[in-house]
């Protein structure tokens, strides 16, 4: 899930931080800039791991900052393709399932990567899987008795395989008129999206494969139905 990336940057230290050891000041400054940010084709930065190299701090004309050229290593969240990770279901809709790992929640399972045959139940707002069933169409699947369905509920812990990831770098458009005109919020694409799959033996809700919690789930659904 995590890896180290080596980056090079020029970092400015404010005079008020001159009293601190330069290394600490640099790390604080780099963390301020990179932590919790998605870098294109790198991943989601977590924090500084260490500083590999730092030059002499230089003062430029015009400000009192000390400018350091620094090479440092960052801890980055970027699961590799085919890696298996454990995540929680954040929400479900017709197009698939959205997952979260707490600090990052742009993990998606598209419908095509769900175990087959499966369908989306609009009443429960959840996808379900019918193991060992010959049915294929959604209407047929929705006619089956609820007790047989294996639901993937919200908040469930789920084991997934990373299939691909994608970075989007949307340029900010021209400035919009704010006075008098209602601002229209366009749906923004997330900068980093990870596409996952559970269409495989052993993937999906962890409880499916432990063989222990399935009974409880069945009970719940009986009560609801």
């Amino acid at each position: 899930m995590f890896c180290l990336s080596i980056l090079k940057d020029t970092v400015a230290i404010h005079p008020s931080n001159f009293g601190a050891p330069p290394e600490d000041a640099l790390i604080a400054e780099i963390n301020k800039k990179y932590a919790n940010r998605v870098l294109h084709e790198v991943g989601l930065c977590i924090c500084v791991f260490d500083i590999a190299e730092a030059g002499e701090g230089k003062v430029r004309y015009g400000d009192g900052f000390l400018w350091y050229k620094v090479v440092f290593r960052l801890v980055v969240f970027r699961p590799f393709t085919s890696e298996v990770i454990v995540a929680k279901v954040k929400s479900s809709d017709e197009d698939g399932i959205r997952l979260t790992v707490g600090f990052f929640d742009d993990l998606y399972i598209p419908v095509a990567y769900l175990p087959q045959p499966s369908a989306f139940d609009p009443n429960e707002r959840a996808h379900f899987w019918l193991p060992d069933s010959a049915l294929t169409t959604t209407t047929e699947l929705l006619d089956t008795p609820v007790a047989e369905r294996m639901y993937i509920d919200q908040g469930e812990v789920i084991r997934v395989r990373v299939e691909s990831d994608e970075f989007c770098d949307d340029e900010p458009g021209p400035p919009k008129v704010t006075e008098g005109v209602q601002m229209k919020h366009e749906p923004k694409r997330p900068p980093y999206v990870v596409c996952c799959s559970i269409a495989e033996q052993g993937l999906g809700p962890v409880a499916w494969w432990n063989g222990s919690t399935q009974v409880e789930e069945g009970d719940e659904e009986m009560e609801q139905g």
Binding site: I6, K8, V42, R73
Partner: peptide
């Protein structure tokens, strides 16, 4: 900013 190596090493969760 310049990326020298986007994945120089893998880290375990621990």
């Amino acid at each position: 900013m310049e990326v020298v190596n986007p994945r120089s090493a893998l880290l375990s969760n621990y």
